[in-house]
Design a protein around this nucleic acid. Structure first.
Lengths: 178, 178
DNA sequence: TTAAATTACTTCGCTATTGAAAACATTCTC
DNA sequence: GAGAATGTTTTCAATAGCGAAGTAATTTAA
């Protein structure tokens, strides 16, 4: 059992190494950080999302989300419009340029992963996703009182899709001053 | 299906993020960075090693090795002595304090992961390990011109073991001025 | 309705890390 | 040897990311 935990950590380390090597290549090639690209991807996936949502999904601090958004906005890749129902927050979405940048920017690791991922069987995809979510939870820095035991297959189904952003509304455009 | 690949990458991102945040927690608690701890481990393993060797094994830039060594030297955890055969370089080794610090410093991530890991069911452990191995393989970048061996560390370093240092020589003490 | 607590985001100061180039030492070549 | 090329370490400027504290909007409670 010990060995298994260690093996997990070693596997993670390999993944990490590949990711970091990839980051540098990407930054040199496209001028976009992996984190920036990830944010673009998240926004595209969500259509519209708040800084908090980005922070949560990307696993970065809120302060970092602010910086990432600001940078991408400066590049003209996204637009912001204040929420009407809650004026503390705002909605971020991709511009044409953002979509273009996202799709033209190659991310070797993500592409490699995605295409390889597509070739494996459905149930294994689900298993992998579930396992990763699980590991993310295990490693998450939260209170010591988790509830780890008794997890079954329902885990997998719950891991299958993003929790959709609950709120959806707030139609009118309402630009945010820089 | 697309979503699943993305979700995997996002989960991975969160794991890496947690590892990094963990580094900071470790730093605050013990005054040692994961990278610093790794360097201590490397030095202990090698008995005596040059900055270049540290840089290579830890997978950090030479400039970073300099900074790490400087910091650890200030803490009194290591000593340096100029090489006699080649006066460009110098040898780094642990002090008593360094050995003590190394052995008393816990690695929270490793520990937290391991203990959490132990509490989950056997089949799920196996599933997670299998999935991680799979992901590592999917993501592996055996580039034709890159030597991926022992590059990129930073986090999850607790799971490391080190390749042996080839060189060995150069005995006499010969302190290096700061 | 007002005050307190919560939530969302931003600003600021800091650290770790890096690439590029400087500063030296060594080795190679003529 | 002299000079060039190579190798080792350091300095420097830049950047990403974070935590803590601050601001603003919302919700809860009294």
């Amino acid at each position: 059992m010990e060995d298994r935990a260690l093996s997990c950590l070693l596997a993670l380390r390999r993944v990490l190494g590949a990711a970091e090597r990839n980051d540098r290549a990407l930054a040199r090639a496209t001028g976009l950080t992996t984190a920036q690209l990830l944010v673009l991807r998240i926004i595209e996936d969500a259509k519209e999302i708040t800084p908090k949502g980005i922070s949560t999904r990307a696993g970065v601090a809120p302060a970092s989300a602010t910086a990432l958004i600001e940078k991408l906005a400066q590049l003209g890749y996204l637009r912001r419009r204040r929420s009407e129902s809650d004026r503390r927050k705002y909605w971020v979405s991709l511009t044409e340029a953002g979509v273009a940048a996202l799709h033209s920017a190659p991310d070797p690791l993500h592409q490699r992963f995605s295409s390889a991922f597509d070739t494996i069987s459905n149930w294994e995809q689900a298993m992998i996703l579930s396992a990763l979510e699980r590991v993310a939870a295990l490693v998450a820095d939260e209170g010591p009182d988790q509830k780890p035991a008794d997890v079954g297959v329902h885990n997998i189904s719950s891991a299958l899709s993003f929790p959709p952003e609950p709120e959806r509304a707030d139609p009118q455009p309402d630009p945010v001053a820089t």
